[in-house]
Write a protein that binds this DNA or RNA. Structure first.
Length: 221
DNA sequence: TTATAGATTGCCT
DNA sequence: GGCAATCTATAAT
């Protein structure tokens, strides 16, 4: 890793959440446009921000790997609701995963957040992850451990089902939302999704080409 | 550097 | 009762 991570993001730019219409489209389109945007967690005066570098689209009725595939249940209800709301589920007995609903009310679809590049509030993320603040500040390898993977990023942002499921990400008063800081993505790679056993071949995973914080082994770009 | 098992909860059949 | 959109420790190469 050749450069240190600096927060070049102004808080003024991060005050406006992306609007509802942004999410009211096909998850494949929203996935591409979410790359490079910034996830913001506000806690009183403290702010954690990180750039979205890897996501997966889940399509609903057409997609046997999606939680919504078998129809609406209490657990997956958010995916069938209006766009721009968080779907948080618990997995493997240990981890929470963060998603956002897409498409209009009544139509299922969503996006799983798989990896982020930390920008601000790195100390708080390290504490939330139970990692050493000192080593994440000095080791690129340890910094990568913070938010590189869906369970990791949820832990770094303090996201739980109890606290965050069903939140409206488009509300200006929300303590969790997504904003555009003007960053432009150069190139997007698409690959099959990770960790699923159905519809394994569909290329619905989207990553920023060359980004160090993408989960898993390095891809050639 | 890669491979493998174990953890541990709640949802759905 | 089975198993999941995962992570970590540990072992072996």
């Amino acid at each position: 890793m050749e450069k240190t991570i600096e927060s070049t993001v102004s808080l003024a730019q991060l005050r406006r959440p992306l609007p509802r219409e942004f999410y009211d489209r096909d998850p494949r389109r929203v996935s591409r446009e979410l790359l490079g945007k910034v996830l913001v967690r506000r806690e009183g005066r403290r702010v954690r921000t990180a750039r979205i570098v890897e996501v997966e689209a889940y399509l609903g009725a057409d997609d046997s790997a999606a939680h919504s595939f078998a129809g609406r249940t209490a657990r997956n209800a958010v995916l069938f609701g209006p766009p721009g709301h968080t779907y948080v589920y618990f997995i493997y007995g240990n981890h929470y995963c963060l998603n956002v609903s897409c498409l209009p009310d009544g139509v299922a679809g969503g996006i799983l957040f798989r990896a982020l590049e930390p920008l601000a509030g790195i100390e708080e993320m390290a504490l939330a992850r139970g990692l050493s603040v000192a080593s994440t500040a000095t080791s690129a390898r340890d910094l990568r451990q913070l938010t590189s993977g869906p369970g990791r990023l949820a832990e770094a942002f303090g996201i739980t089902r109890e606290r965050d499921n069903g939140k409206d990400l488009t509300s200006a008063r929300s303590d969790l939302f997504i904003a555009d800081d003007g960053y432009r993505v150069r190139r997007i790679l698409t690959t099959p999704r990770i960790g699923i056993s159905k519809a394994v071949e569909r290329p619905l995973r989207y990553v920023i080409s060359g980004n160090e914080f993408v989960s898993g082994p390095r891809l050639r770009s």
